[in-house]
Simulated assay, not measured.
Amino acid sequence: MFERTSVGLDVHARSIAACALDSTTGEIIRQTLAPDDVTAWLERLPGPIAVTYEAGPTGFWLARTLAGAGIECQVAAPSRLLRAPGDRVKTDKRDAMSLARMLRLGEIVPVRVPTADQEAMRDLCRAHAAAVKDLTHARQRINAMLLRQGAVYPEASHWTRAHSAWLGRQHFDHPAAQAVFESLLEAESLAVQRRKRLDKLVASAAADCEYTPVINALTCLRGIDTAAGFGLAAEIGDWTRFTGATIGSYLGLVPSEDSSGQTRRQGAITKAGNSHARWLLAEAAWIHRRPYRRPGVRLLKQWELVDPATRIRAQEGNQRLHRRWEAFDARNKASTKANTAVARELAGWCWSLAVPLQQGAAMKAA
Rank of each mutant, 00 (worst) to 15 (best):
A205H: 08
A138F: 05
R197G: 09
E304V: 04
R290H: 13
A347R: 11
L357P: 11
A63H: 02
Q359T: 14
G296M: 06
V89S: 07
A165S: 13
A366F: 02
A361Q: 15
T336K: 14
Q149F: 07
F230H: 02
S335A: 11
T25S: 15
P154A: 08
K364F: 10
A116C: 01
L62R: 04
L218M: 12
Q359A: 03
G59Y: 00
R222Q: 15
W239T: 03
K93M: 10
G231A: 01
D36F: 07
I236F: 04
D10N: 08
A151R: 01
D87W: 02
A50K: 02
R324I: 07
Y250N: 08
R278V: 07
L201A: 02
W166V: 11
F328I: 12
L42F: 09
M1H: 03
A17Y: 00
A191R: 12
S256L: 11
G106R: 04
H163K: 06
A205V: 07
I312L: 07
W61S: 02
D123Y: 00
I215T: 01
S183E: 13
V180I: 14
P35Y: 03
D329L: 15
A162I: 07
A100I: 00
M121W: 03
P175S: 02
I224S: 11
F181C: 03
D37G: 08
R112D: 09
D329F: 14
A343W: 05
L82D: 13
A162Q: 12
I28H: 11
R148W: 05
H276N: 01
K133S: 04
R161M: 09
A177R: 09
P110A: 06
G223V: 09
A327P: 04
A343V: 11
A84F: 05
L251D: 14
N318P: 08
N318A: 13
R4Q: 15
A20C: 11
H137F: 03
N274G: 04
A228M: 03
W41Q: 04
L45G: 11
L190G: 15
A187P: 05
E3M: 10
T24V: 14
A282F: 04
G70C: 14
R264E: 15
M363L: 15
H158A: 11
L321C: 10
L299F: 10
A40V: 07
Y53T: 12
